[in-house]
Every structure is written in C-alpha cells, then in structure tokens.
Write a protein that binds this DNA or RNA. Sequence first.
DNA 1: GACCTGCTGCGGTCTG
Length: 735
Amino acid sequence: MSDSSSFFALDSRIQRFIWAEGWEELRDAQEVAIPHIVKGNTDVIIAAATAAGKTEAAFFPALTYLVAQEKPGLIVYISPLKALINDQFGRLDRLCEDLDVPVWPWHGDISSSSKARFLKDPHGVLLITPESLEAMLCNRGASVRTIFQHTAFFVIDELHAFIGSERGKQLQSLICRIESVLKTVIPRVGLSATLGDMQLGADYLRPGKADSVVIVESRAAGAELKVAIKGYEEPSVPHRDADDSAEVKSASPAHIASHLFKVLRGSNNLVFPNSRREVERYTHLLQGLCAHHHVPNQFWPHHGSLSKEIRSETEAALKQKTQPATAVCTNTLELGIDIGAVKSIAQIGPPPSVASLRQRLGRSGRRKNEPAILRGYCVEDARVPGSSIATLLRLNTVQMAAMITLLGEKWFEPPRIHGLHLSTLIQQLLSLISQNGGVTATQAYQLLCAPSAPFSGTSRPDFIALLRHLGQKELLMQDSSGLLLHGPLGEKFVNHYTFYAAFAADEEFRIVAGGRPLGALPVSLMLSVGQRILFAGRTWYVDEIDEEQKVIYVSPAKGGTPPLFSGGGGRVHTRVRQRMRALLAGDNDLPFLDESARRFVAEGREAYGRMGLDGRVLLDAGTQLMILTWIGDSGNEAIACLLKRRGFTAAPSDLGVEVHKGGHSEEDILSALADAATDEFPDLDNLLLDAKNLQREKWDWALPDALLRKAYASLYLDLDEALAWIRSAVSPEAA
DNA sequence: GACCTGCTGCGGTCTG
C-alpha cells in the first residue's frame, strides 16, 4: 500500500477502514478511478468484473470528496434492484459510520418514518431506485431544489441494465430534470461489469458529451473458462406420459436432469433453462431424483413469478455454507445480488444472447485460481423424412457453439440504443407537469427533447402532434395562458402509485396453497378447476379460481405439467447468425463438444453442403420459400415488412425470411426485393402502414398511429441492414 | 416477442 498514491488521496478514516479490513492493496480499478473521482468534477465509468470492488472504487473517493466540503453534501446512488440497495446498505453503512455520514436506503419496502427522517435534513448517501426517484420528483416538486441542492455525485450501478431500455430513458430524464432545477452539472459515475462498447456507455451516462467521460477499465484478467457441451437426440416418436395422457412428453429433459444430478450434487451451481416453464420442469425432475436416491434436496427454483418467500428460501439456501445448493433459475439471478460464489453454470438450450451468457458466467469462478465452468445442453430432434431445415442443420447446437466461440473472443451484443421510447416521453411529460404544477410546451420540449436531452430523437412537429393527441385522449389539457396541465384521465393515472414505473407489467393471478402465497401466473394463461399444475417445484391441484380477487387456490397433488408460460425466443444478433453460417461452412474442430454434439455439427455441415447453402439465397420448403439471409432478427423483420408492402405474406424466421408462395414464383420475390433495394427513400412509416399489434411499451396506447409506428420501428426494425443485405445478395448491380 | 425490474400519501385503527 505504501507505493499507492491513490490510497493516500483518500480520507484518513477511509485509509484506516481499509487497513482494518485487512486489504493489502487496492484493486486496479480502484487505483485508477480514485484520482479522477476524488476531484468531484468529472464523469467516470468504472468497468470491472463482478466482485472486483467497483462499489469501493466509486465510494472511497466520492466520500473523501464529500466529507471535505464545508456543507454536508449528498451522494445519490441509483440501483435497478431493491435487493441490491439492501446489499449495498450493509456494505456502506459500516464505512460511513466512521465518517459520520448517514446512509439512507429508499425504496418501496422502506418505512415512511425513515424517509421522513432523511427529508428533514437531506444529506449523506441516498440509495434509491428510479421509481422512487420518480415519485420524489412527481410528489415533492417544490422540495426538489432543497433535497438535491448539495448533491456531489450521481452513482449509477449496473449501468448496462439501464442502457437501451424504457427504465434507462426514465433515469436519464430524472437526472436531467434534477440538474435542470439546480441549474448545475453534477458528476455522474457509472458502474458496470458487462459493457462491450465503452463509447455507448459514455453516451448513455452523459448524452451529447460522451468525450468528456473518463473510462476506467479493469485490466484484471477474468477467470479461466472451462466449457463442455453435451448433445441429446429426441426420438422421432414421442411417448405419452403415463401419468398425464394429455401431455406428449419428451425424453431429453429426464436425461439432462440425471446428468445434472450426477455432476452438480455436492456443490453450489446455477442452472439456466431459459423459461419459467422449464425452470419448473427441471426443478421437479431434480427434486424427484433427490427423493429417489433418499438424499436431502439440493435443488431450488427461482423465477419472477414465484413469491418473495419462496425466492428468499432459494437465496438463503445458496448463501448458507452447511449444505450444498443449486438454483434452477431465469435471469432473476443474473444481476449482482449477493448469492455467494458458485462452482459452475449449466445452460440448457442456446442462451438468449452472448451478453446474457457472459453475465451468467460472471457468477462462476469468483474465487482466486478457480476456473469458471460452463456446461451446455443441446437437444436436437431425430432426422426423419420431412424434417425442418432447422432440424437438418442442427441449429440449436450450431447456435450454442457459435455463441461460445464469440464469448471466447470476448465479443457480445451491444445494447440497442436506437429506441425512441416515446412511451416514456409521455410518462415524463405527465410527471413534469406534476413536479411544476404545469409546463409550457416550449419548456417541456427544451428540457426533454432538445439536442443532448434524453428524447432528442423527437422532432418538433412530432412533439406537437403528440401533445395534440394526448389532449384528445384527455391525458393533457391547456389552460387559457397556454400552460399544459393534466387532463381528467391524466390526473387519474398520475395519482395512482403504479404511475412511477416506466415499464408495463402483466396482470396476474396470485396462487395460494393452504394460506401460503406461492407466486403468480399471468392472467393470459387459462387454468381450470381440477387441473394439475407444476409450480415452485411441486405439483398442485387447482381447487378454486376467484376471478374477482384474481386468486387461484391450490392443494398438493401428484403428477402434473409445468404451467404454460407463453413460449418464444429472444432476438438473435447478425454477428451470431454469421458465425453460425461460418461454423456450418467450415470444418474446424470444436473441442468443447461431446461426441453427440460433435455428431450434430457434422450432420449440420453435411446438410449445409448437400443443400448447397453456401451461395444460396432462396430455398424451396413446400408451401413456403425461404430467403436465407443469415442476418439478425431486426434485419429479417425489416425485409419481411418490405415484402409485405409489395403484397407478399412474409415473416422473419431462424435463417432469414419465410415467404408464402401463394402463386408467386421465385422470380417474383427476387424482383420485389430488387425493387425494394432501388427505392431511394424507403419510408419507415409507410413500411408498417398495415401492421397491427404494435403496442409494446406502457404508454404506447396513447401514441398517435404514426408515432406508434416510428416507436416500434426504432426498437425492432433495422432497415439499413435489410437494404444492405438485399443490395449485396439479390442485386449486386444496384449496389 | 424469452426473461426481468418497481410503486405514494393518506386515512383508518390501535397502542402506550
């Protein structure tokens, strides 16, 4: 420590704290970040692996700066999770006690008395969620200046979880609104483990002034990665489950579960099967195996529909040290809540993205000199006459392999930052009116939509059209002086607590067993009395459904099927599709595959060669013609839209775009594509003219049609990529 | 479209 100038830049009480903790040196991210943050006038991003001491890298110097000021100041820390606020409170409170700085956790579970104590003398460290910050601005508009007057820093944790989302836009807007009230610039510190492109992170942290953001990237190498992928072939004749004749049961989950049981028992691990339904299936199978072998249960479920109590049980099982525990989970366990170190990660089926796979692996190999371990499981259907192209090409296995090679090259998907999030603009407009008791259209546009503002993609005519439409919907009205106020409906929304979240949530039925809440199911799922369901790892009999109170009463039963959470897939990036193609076209050995998975890839390569897919753009698949693009879903969806505008029935698929033949020839499709490529000003608005069902975000229902199409296109269509592909593949002469 | 996240102020009643 004696050669560390950063250490000596810290307040002496913090130095003593570090000695008392027995830390012999500062981590490299801390060493580099301290001199920048301690000055109290720069924006900084700290990117370092989980458990590399990012919190301390931000707070040691920020607190040093804070206690050196004449007046008691404030650090505002923002987290995407309540659980993370509770964790951080435990870590910071001890340190801050020595400094005489109060720490205030603030979220929905915190008592109003504690909140009142903070408001009486607002200084110290405030740990808060975006939603609670929204409520503060909305309901205490007159006090915003007093509360935040002496704010020294905004610290944003898990930065990557905010970039590109509705909530991220909301947070940018909230910070912007506070700075606007104070008429000062307050330094922002962003913390993140997963940031591929530092520039995108800087753009998010300080829109329009990304160049001034200091980037601190940890040099510390990540843990060594060990990967093993196993392949399973699903027999062509599915057998029926003797216990439940309605269910066609596949054989592979049982085989995968018995392998998991064998290799995971005795240590702590995380199993990711990609959906809540599959979490239920695998938890049930693994708990059954424990019972069958007369050993204590070591497998616990965790997903967002389970009650808080059940999730806490699983988290507690992972944290305690006496008995090994493995969680079968969705991405509820992806973010930085403290669950202790785990030995390995199991991924069943291809992960939703490389970024997500990387985040999941960050949970493993956190002890010194221990590798991170990834076990992948791929299921492919047996090949029969009439098998789909996806089956013949072994796409599940090829996609998993492609994603693992990209992970090894340290590539992962950048966040999609082009969303306009006009839904969130509506929320912010309504909230701004609450805060100020009304705003003028000019003030609102200046604050929210000007260059460098959070909604800077919104043009003045679009903004005016939006205001007019919100007036028609009775969300807004204008008084005689031109001031914008809440309309009757706007008033109703703003005065309900559900207003503060920027994202929409499904309506749900609560599930109750003998008075104990088990969790919730989306209302869209139809259940009937007498049905058996699998939930929280056990099977239940549905006794009663209370439609009025939205409660499902269940009692223990034997046998059952997992609840049908709606199925589907994520969005695959172009880079992943191109790597899949390269793997199919190539012949390199993939040493992380077991014998079956290796056979799948060999079969896929054989099929790829036999169908002559290397130079091929169109493939006849019976009633459908496949356009093979090998680009990402946003590009494929844009191509499908271009064809739909020209009278075809088209939809994006795994390998490109599926077009219904319906009397059209291959030449018709090719010339339609060539026509689209030469259209010099394809109008995005026009592209979705006949499209239905475009509402995705919370306030989308209140957008005028033209803006709804723009908002949808900004999130889901990549027209540039679509046109580039068409020009290179279909009409090289037009390029 | 897989998955996930979050939520106030006030009026009522009861206790010390």
